[in-house]
Amino acid sequence: MDRIDRHLLSALQIDSSRSLADLAEEVGTSTSGCQRRIKSLEAAGLIMGFSARLDPQRLGLKLQAFVEITLNSQSREAMDRFEQAVEDFDDILECHLMAGSADYILRIAAHDLEQFDRIHRDCLSRLPGVSSMRSSFAIRTIKRWRGYPTR
């Protein structure tokens, strides 16, 4: 991966809807060269796909919750059951296996506390092998995720 590839990855993370000609001009290559580089980065697994970043506030998702999960057991079977169950619930936006006091951290978005209560009752409480849950709520987002550093 050279300087142009890194610049291209940064530019795509900012706005992947830009035209190839615009991207090529920014990174200093031809349009066909830019397209070849993007295809190569996709084939190498560096680019996993393209998507739109949505504004949760405009979607009415005013509550962001982070839920720390501790399991009864850290056996492979218990973790596999938990992770499979997480995949079945669209209300769980992200799930991270952690090192530290919690086994997992989940990210949930909801319209309000009433909807979070429904998600808690209908989704989180059904996750297998959970011994404890601790929820924290974001008051305000200070810095939004803008992509990975490519340096």
Rank of each mutant, 00 (worst) to 15 (best):
S136Y: 14
M133F: 09
A52R: 14
T70F: 03
D90H: 11
L41N: 02
G147P: 00
S30K: 09
D117A: 13
S32V: 12
K39T: 10
G28D: 11
K143V: 03
R36K: 13
R134P: 02
A99T: 14
A44Q: 13
G100I: 01
G49K: 01
R151W: 14
A43E: 15
D90C: 01
G49A: 00
G49F: 04
R37P: 01
G45N: 10
T31R: 15
Q64V: 11
L106I: 05
R107G: 00
L54R: 13
V27S: 10
G100Y: 02
S131I: 11
A44W: 05
D80P: 00
A99I: 09
L113D: 11
H111C: 11
W145S: 00
S132P: 00
I105K: 06
D91L: 03
D122T: 05
A52C: 03
C95R: 05
E94I: 03
D103I: 06
L61T: 01
Y104V: 00
E42K: 06
H96C: 04
Q84M: 10
L124F: 07
A110R: 10
L97E: 03
K62L: 14
E114L: 08
P149L: 08
E114S: 12
R146N: 14
A43I: 06
R58T: 10
V130M: 09
D117M: 02
E42C: 06
D90F: 11
I105N: 09
W145M: 04
T141M: 04
G100T: 08
H120S: 12
G33A: 07
